[in-house]
Design a protein around this nucleic acid. Structure first.
Length: 498
RNA sequence: GCCGGCGUAGCUCAGUUGGUUAGAGCGCUUGAUUGUGGAUCAAGAGGCCCCCCGUUCGAGCCGGGGCGCUGGUACCA
């Protein structure tokens, strides 16, 4: 009786793990092209490549210990055999800090390096947000000069243009955390003599400012004061500022003027009471002057609403935003938003060495940038597949493979059919692969010293105009050529199709 | 975390007031065509109807709970 009751095996479901994705041919090529365009710019600016391991010790990554602070928050981590905690890197900056601290004696100071690769974050994925994504970073470690920040901004402009974003389609917005801190002082949220007090409230204020473009001034006001309830019914607690304080912060956020100089002038008024704030304004002026001198003034501007999360930034911060509109899946116009960001962090290496080492750098989110470009220029041109040499006589594989070899050494992408099946099946395969040409050499052709070249691209075009099977069979998209002229004729046919 | 929507074939989805053996399109396999891609036609393979409990003579459908996916929001080094 066990016979007729088929034993059901639970089959594994073939799916990409949640938050991850697979990249197929064209996407892989597209990304690696973009990567090399960007790194070429980084290299030209004098930055050295650095490739570090994907795995770091949790200790080196710092702060985000699993099970301790927040279980399962952020990093993919596991315990090694010796019980040491390991984790996949969540960005490229923390590994840089580790490498710099570790190799300080061998590395030049300032050390300029770029790094590219995937990073992993163990958090809830959203639309367009994955748990593995590619970053492309450049940092200067060991220089406190605003010139280092200005250089990064200029380089970011060049990198975006090399990646295919046209001038005018992006904008670098620059701010300075010192100015923000100056405002905090003025509002009374920061006491320079006790910098640790009120950190939480300042965090709430920073996050509120960061949401200006999405929520608008009124939403930010609500978050600075009592709090805000959004459409989904979720309530976000505010910073609890009073009306006067709120207006001071909003005055800062909206301090942007026609020119950089005017904006700096306005900021100077706002943070007059704070020496740190004034220092920040002076840095912004220096950066603006340096960018101007290099001819970047139209592509970068000072914008007091830039915050860059909270995190470790201590000085200038910058963000690259795309300014063109795209039509999303719902048919609505929207801005694409930020594709890169960075800033100055002065304390990253201190964790390792106890020394104060300033650094500044930028990170480009490659996946977002790729998505933006795809939206902008529409669907990528269809990829052309390899020339297919069909197999007519199973015992003449060497003949077919010789043709393939000839084509390949002439630089033409080609392959012999390796599956099983008749001619119809082989041509279907060629069709699916977008092969431009199929080559047929049966016994008759062999004896006559010729081969058939089938122009698949032309045939596909003709198919659109054809009604009946007879017409289809009669279509002229196939020619006979002498065997010894194979390479030339295939090349010519591909050229006609393109 | 919080709020909402949805779970039926590989994919996109139908499925009547609860009623026999659960359907379609696409995709896949085979054939009409033993040497020619499209279109057409025919046949075939492929289902824990998310899971558990309950109601019922009877549940894909009704009730409760769970899980998963998804949209928004929060967090994001």
């Amino acid at each position: 009786m066990a016979k007729n009751k088929k034993q059901k095996v639970r089959r594994p479901s073939a799916e990409t793990p949640k938050g991850f994705r697979d990249y197929f041919g064209a996407e892989v090529a597209e990304r690696s092209e973009m990567l090399s365009a960007i790194t070429e710019v980084y290299h030209r600016y004098g930055f050295d490549a650095l490739e570090t391991s994907a795995v770091e010790t949790v200790e080196a990554l710092g702060k985000f210990l699993p099970d301790v602070d927040r279980p399962n928050a952020g990093v993919f981590a596991w315990q090694d055999e010796d019980e040491a905690w390991m984790a996949l890197r969540y960005d490229l900056t923390a590994p840089l800090a580790r490498v710099y601290a570790q190799n300080q004696q061998f590395l030049p100071t300032p050390y300029r390096r770029y790094a590219v690769g995937p990073v992993w974050r163990n958090e809830k994925p959203g639309p367009g947000r994955y748990r593995q994504f590619y970053q492309c970073d450049a940092d200067t470690v060991g220089s406190a000069s605003p010139a280092a920040d200005a250089e990064i901004c200029a380089m970011l402009c060049d990198a975006l243009e090399a990646a295919g974003i046209e001038r005018g389609d992006y904008l670098i917005r620059i701010n300075n955390r010192k100015v923000l801190n100056g405002v905090m002082e003025v509002v009374g949220l920061l006491n320079p003599d006790a910098p640790d007090e009120g950190e939480e409230a300042r965090g709430v204020v920073l996050r509120a400012i960061d949401k200006l473009d999405r929520l608008g001034p009124d939403g930010v006001r609500a978050l600075l004061g009592e709090g805000r309830k959004d459409e989904s019914g979720d309530y976000t607690k505010g910073a609890g500022l009073n009306a006067d304080q709120t207006e001071i912060v909003m005055g800062f956020v909206e301090a942007e003027r026609e020119t950089g100089a005017a904006t700096c002038g306005r900021l100077r008024e706002l943070v007059e009471a704070s020496p740190a704030g004034l220092e920040g304004v002076a840095e912004l002026e220096t950066i603006a002057a340096l960018l101007d001198a290099q001819g970047y003034s139209g592509r970068a501007k000072i914008d007091p609403s830039v915050v860059r999360g909270l995190g470790y930034y201590t000085g200038p911060v910058y963000e690259a935003e795309l300014t063109f509109e795209i039509i999303d899946e719902k048919g609505q116009k929207r801005q694409f938003g930020s594709v890169a960001g960075g800033g100055r962090y002065d304390d990253l290496v201190m964790r390792f060495t106890g020394q104060h080492v300033p650094g500044t750098g930028v990170s480009i989110g490659l996946d977002r940038l790729l998505a933006a470009l795809r939206e902008k220029r529409g669907k990528a041109a269809e990829q052309v597949g390899p020339v297919l040499v069909t197999v007519m006589d199973k015992d003449r594989l060497p003949d077919y493979q010789t043709m393939v070899a000839e084509l390949r050494s002439a630089g033409i992408r080609a392959e012999m059919f390796l599956g099983g099946g008749n001619m119809a099946k082989q041509l279907k395969y060629a069709d699916k692969r977008s092969s431009p040409v199929a080559i047929i050499e049966g016994g008759n052709e062999k004896d006559a010293g010729i081969v058939q070249l089938k122009d698949l691209a032309l045939g596909a075009r003709l198919a659109a105009e054809i009604e009946t099977n007879e017409q289809w069979k009669a279509q002229p998209a196939q020619i006979e050529v002498p065997r010894e002229r194979l390479v030339e004729e295939v090349r010519a046919m591909i050229a006609r199709a393109g």
